[in-house]
Design a binder for these strands. Structure first.
Lengths: 150, 150, 150, 150
DNA sequence: GATGAATGAGGCTTCATTCAT
DNA sequence: TATGAATGAAGCCTCATTCAT
């Protein structure tokens, strides 16, 4: 796409990234919410499902993920705020899931907030490492070992 | 500090960050290594110690941490490589600790690498959240809940 | 020409000057070499031809000459070296011409190198003076009187 | 000398250079004038004397010459004007000498101005070459060959 | 007189954005 | 729609000069 055409379709660089970011965030958020409400599964299975869904999402979108998770970081204050807010939403989503699990007695953690951060951070880290690998392994292969850690 | 004075003390912007980064990385690396070799403690205690040491380190250096963990991200290709390499070293340190724990039968995880990423990511995430908080809680208060998750 | 456009066409300031300088130097060098090999002319005529060619070259390029001979001096070490090397080449060209004249018995000077410097310096000086004149005379009109001095 | 002390003795960088330049110019100008009025010598001898005097002056001041003839070129418009004016004075001095020689029938050139430029340029060039040499020859050794060219 | 840390205007360059075609 | 040359604000850095000691 030529430079000029880009500015025909998007207001500016931020605009494109914001659109993409909103889309991605809501997709992942959807996965998290669906994870919590998937009927008769145990908490462990639900949690795993969420992570697997996220991994599957990125698995087929490595270049997009690189842009959104690496290149889009620290771009400018305005977008940075949007990025942080997106991450917060995901964190809250994870937290709500954990709370439900906690209430139903499936898990028992001293601090749901901290647990959500830990799970979120662990997932994020595994994706980041996968993005930096020269010859990336199958991201979804990492879901089971990750689940076993928790 | 005036523009000129900065360049009197540092070769360029990168120079400052690289110096700081090297220092911080080796400090944290030291904590990780000391964690593994702290005598007669159990693995759990050792692991906790590492995390607590890291948290204590950042607790008293919030502004520095903001610069190194937020503002220094995506600065330029040269420094970005240094940053990634630093993170890799920390990851490897964690991995080596876990391997020792695994061998001594204290823990049992299917993939030490993934476990290291998870712990590293969880720790990183908690620090990041703490950095973004308006009125930060005591970072070290989060160490125990974090330990309980694992 | 806007700031940005300059860097669209040239890598940097040096790049423009280097390109121009190479071009000009090789043009003048060509004139010097052609001067020596212009068939059945006597040495005096050949020498005159060289100077006239150089003068004609600059006559129609006064502004360019101002940039290259005045503004480009002492710009920066890298370009300065290029400038000096260019001048050396011209000097060597003149020297080779004189050597040929000397061998063929047309001239008789105690030191060809010094003679080359003298001719080169005299020519250079006349061009410089012409560049600094408010209402410049015809540069080529100075070729004959210059030839008579030698 | 420390930076601060420099600005105690001189108003600014220009000030030092201007003072030096005035001094050098008047010294050389003196040599040129004395050359013309040195009693009962022939024109050739007088001319030679002038050049030799100039050469002797620089011979023992190579570093100073480097500063004034190389580094001081193109420094800034204000000093550049002073530099050009200095060179013009020298040129006029040479011209006056030549005019006297011409009147007394010792030389016969079609254009005294051009002749002055040629001599001035030749002398300048030889000094410049000497300044750029790694292992400089004796500058005064070049006076005789130079004289023979004319 | 003497020092060298501190200052900031100005230079070179980049890059997101605009505009003429 | 589509192009890519043109723009200029903003970033990094240098260096002549000043100032506190």
């Amino acid at each position: 796409m030529s430079v000029g055409l880009f500015y025909f379709y998007f207001k500016n660089k931020e605009d494109l990234l914001e659109n993409l970011y909103d889309e991605i965030t809501s997709m992942i958020l959807g996965a998290i919410e669906r994870g919590a409400s998937s009927g008769d599964l145990g908490s462990m299975e639900k949690g795993c499902n969420v992570v697997v869904t996220i991994f599957v999402f990125f698995q087929t979108r490595r270049e997009l993920a690189k842009v959104m998770l690496i290149e889009a970081v620290g771009l400018n204050p305005r977008f940075e705020q949007k990025r942080i807010e997106g991450l917060k939403k995901l964190l809250i989503g994870t937290e709500q899931n954990l709370e439900a699990f906690q209430k139903s007695g499936h898990i028992n953690v001293p601090d749901v907030k901290v647990a959500a951060m830990a799970i979120h951070g662990a997932t994020y880290q595994i994706i980041m490492n996968w993005l930096y690998e020269e010859t990336p392994v199958n991201l979804t292969d990492l879901a089971y070992p990750l689940a076993q850690v928790s």
